[in-house]
């Protein structure tokens, strides 16, 4: 019966596949290839082996961006998920205004990107203005400013996922726990948390990849100031490409390393938290 169906490949798949090839497959392949070349334009390349990778690692800016992104991601993982889970616990109770609260906490995520960065910077720079400084005054200000911005943006999104997870916990289990004399904390740690482990998996995954990839907010809030000290990996790679002549090859090598980092961490994390999941 499906035999006829295969002939329709050009209609069903080809348009999407063509766009996917132009927008992703070719640029991805070219990107890997270019990372082994020195070039100023794509038509004028010169094979240099691993030189770009060596230069990437000997570039202070890259190492600093790597540490910045790592620290930023670890701190965000905690702030976003603890706050999101706490909110989800509160907002799955039976009380008034629950839907309104959910909407408000989700809102920053909708605005997103560069606009959210500038909206946030008005508040932060206004507050810091009382001490006569702004966010670019010191690297620590930029770091915590970005953590706050990221938490503001991602918490609502993760909260929605945790709420969906918590709503799937059977009431019979929490009631049984209550009858057995379990208090709030033991119900939380021994019943609810193990059962929402799939939500924890996906929320840590999303926070991890989003925080590592952060670009727009970084550009809007600090743009790396002071002196490129608050630059995450994505922004550092962008500046290597478009801000330093003769460094395009190094930029592409950094981008490949960035991709590998995201891929490895994401798959390690998925394997690690998946193993803690249980069924109800």
């Amino acid at each position: 019966m499906y035999k006829r169906f295969y002939r329709w490949f050009p209609v069903f798949v080809l348009p999407t596949l063509a766009a996917f090839t132009v927008a992703f497959l070719i640029p991805f392949g070219m990107g890997v290839w270019l990372s082994f070349h020195r070039f100023t334009t794509i038509r004028n390349t010169h094979f240099v082996g691993l030189e770009n990778y060596v230069r990437a690692f000997s570039d202070d800016g890259f190492v600093r961006a790597l540490t910045f992104s790592a620290a930023f991601t670890v701190v965000s993982l905690v702030t976003v998920n603890v706050l999101a889970f706490a909110l989800a616990l509160a907002l799955t109770r039976r009380m008034r205004g629950v839907n309104l609260f959910r909407g408000v906490f989700f809102m920053p995520n909708l605005i997103g990107g560069i606009v959210l960065g500038y909206v946030f910077s008005l508040l932060v720079n206004g507050l810091l203005g009382f001490w006569g400084v702004d966010i670019t005054y010191a690297a620590t200000y930029g770091f915590w400013g970005l953590v706050a911005l990221n938490t503001w943006q991602l918490t609502g999104y993760m909260m929605v996922i945790y709420i969906a997870g918590l709503q799937n916990v059977p009431v019979s289990l929490t009631e049984a726990a209550a009858i057995d004399g379990a208090g709030f904390l033991s119900t939380l740690f021994h019943v609810k948390l193990p059962l929402v482990a799939p939500s924890v998996t996906i929320c840590t995954f999303l926070t991890l990849t989003n925080s590592l990839k952060m670009f727009d907010q970084n550009l809007a809030l600090t743009a790396g100031a002071p002196e490129r000290q608050t630059q995450g990996l994505a922004l550092d790679i962008y500046n290597t490409f478009y801000g330093r002549i003769g460094w395009q090859g190094v930029g592409q090598a950094k981008a490949v390393l960035f991709f590998l980092l995201v891929a490895v961490i994401a798959s390690l994390q998925l394997g690690l938290t998946r193993s803690r999941e249980v069924d109800a």
């Binding site: 927008a23 640029p27 991805f28 990107g31 270019l34 981008a255 960035f258």
Partner: peptide, 25 residues
């Protein structure tokens, strides 16, 4: 294989294809 390629593209950061995409486009 096609399906896996689509899924694979989700984890690739934009910076990986940024420069070459601009050129190809």
């Amino acid at each position: 294989v096609l399906y896996l390629l689509f899924v694979f593209s989700m984890i690739v950061p934009f910076q990986m294809v940024m420069y070459t995409l601009t050129y190809v486009v």
